[in-house]
Simulated scan of single mutants.
Amino acid sequence: MADTPGSEGPEDLDGGTVSAQSNAREVTKSENIEHAANLPKQAPFDNLDAFGTDIAFKGNYAFVGNYDGLVVYDISNPKKPAIVSQVACPGGQGDVSISGNLLFVSTDYPRSNNTCQSEERTAADPDAWEGMKVFDVSDPAKPRYVSAIATDCGSHTHTLVPDKAGESVYLYISSYGPKPEFPNCQPPHDKISIIEVPLANPAEPVLVDAPVLFPDGGNPGQPGGIRETSGCHDITVFPEKDLAAGACMGDGVLFDISDREKPRVINQVRDDENFAFWHSATFVDGGKTQRAKHT
């Protein structure tokens, strides 16, 4: 719900949306990079709206989310990737992560229900559904839909966090774009949603909390492009250090996640001179430094 279709589409080297003409131009690259392969999209994902969003890896497989579903690739030979299976399951964004045989997929556009046969709805529909879907990919050739759970404002991105006992995984759901006329995405929405998925029973995910991260409202934003804070765009975790870094549009945030169900903000950074939109974050090796990407 956060973005209109295509607003986070493929970008060219100058930051603009890639057009059919620019796709045909020569690709520039560093001398130490070799173009290994190019595998065109195939039906049902050969349309312009089904651009890829995220990739999760397991063994010899890559699980690629897109706005209309997901594709599983065999990458055992990197120079000859092959499509193993495709799942048509429209819902926007399609951010993916994997743990063991479980694949998690974000749904960020309102749908008529939580199935892969759902239809488009508007965010003003109180019965519209958005949130997280869970698939069993123990057989990559036959991904199996397991369960789903709704979250406020859907799931633009999500971050997988293993628990310390090895019995569950947690999903930190980032979403935004609240409006008073959206019954399931009410402002101020200064929060994330936390889902627990029991590994022994992935058919029963549970929404354990939706903590407010910015009780003061966060960055109010400024004319000229500084984005107000109303949730987070993306969160990166360093489980071994019990840390998470949040890119929350107007604010950069560092969390203590020693209690996976109760992440605690321990530092907050605001830089309206150099950052218009905190978009993503990562840690360097060792976890002593975090870096942020801004737009």
Rank of each mutant, 00 (worst) to 15 (best):
Met1Tyr: 12
Ser7Leu: 05
Glu11Phe: 03
Glu11Met: 12
Leu13Trp: 10
Leu13Phe: 07
Gly16Ile: 08
Gln21Lys: 11
Arg25Ser: 07
Arg25Tyr: 06
Val27Trp: 00
Val27Lys: 13
Ser30Thr: 13
Glu31Ile: 06
Glu31Gly: 08
Glu31Thr: 06
Ile33His: 04
Glu34Phe: 01
Glu34Trp: 09
Ala43His: 15
Pro44Cys: 09
Asp46His: 07
Asp46Leu: 00
Leu48Met: 12
Asp49His: 15
Thr53Arg: 07
Phe57Cys: 11
Phe63Asn: 04
Val72Ala: 12
Asp74Thr: 05
Ser76His: 11
Gln86Arg: 08
Gly92Ala: 06
Gln93Val: 11
Ile98Tyr: 09
Leu103Arg: 13
Val105Arg: 02
Asp108Thr: 05
Asn113Leu: 11
Thr115Gln: 10
Gln117Glu: 10
Gln117Pro: 05
Gln117Tyr: 06
Ser118Val: 12
Arg121Ala: 15
Arg121Phe: 04
Ala124Arg: 10
Ala128Cys: 05
Trp129Lys: 11
Glu130Phe: 02
Gly131Thr: 04
Met132Ala: 02
Ser138Ile: 02
Ser138Val: 03
Lys142Thr: 00
Arg144Leu: 07
Tyr145Met: 12
Thr151Met: 10
Thr157Phe: 06
Thr157Leu: 03
Ala165Pro: 00
Glu167Trp: 01
Ser168Leu: 12
Val169Glu: 09
Leu171Ser: 09
Leu171Lys: 04
Ser175Asp: 06
Gly177Val: 08
Pro180Arg: 13
Pro180Met: 05
Pro188Asp: 05
Glu196Cys: 04
Glu196Pro: 15
Val197Asn: 02
Pro198Val: 08
Pro198Phe: 06
Ala200Ser: 12
Asn201Thr: 10
Glu204Arg: 11
Glu204Tyr: 03
Pro205Trp: 04
Pro205His: 03
Asp209Ile: 08
Asp209Trp: 00
Pro211Trp: 05
Phe214Arg: 00
Pro220Ala: 03
Pro220Asn: 02
Pro223Ser: 06
Gly224Glu: 08
Gly231Met: 07
Ile235Pro: 01
Val237Met: 03
Pro239Ile: 13
Lys241Trp: 02
Ala247Asn: 04
Cys248Gly: 11
Leu254Ile: 14
Asp259Val: 15
Val265Glu: 05
Asn267Tyr: 12
Asn267Glu: 15
Arg270Pro: 09
Asp272Val: 03
Glu273Asp: 04
Asn274Leu: 07
Asn274Cys: 01
Phe275Met: 10
Ala276Phe: 14
Phe277Tyr: 01
Ala281Val: 01
Thr282His: 10
Phe283Val: 01
Asp285His: 13
Gly286Phe: 13
Gly287Leu: 14
Lys288Leu: 14
Lys288Glu: 12
Thr289Met: 14
Thr289Gly: 14
Gln290Leu: 10
Arg291Ile: 04
Ala292Gln: 12
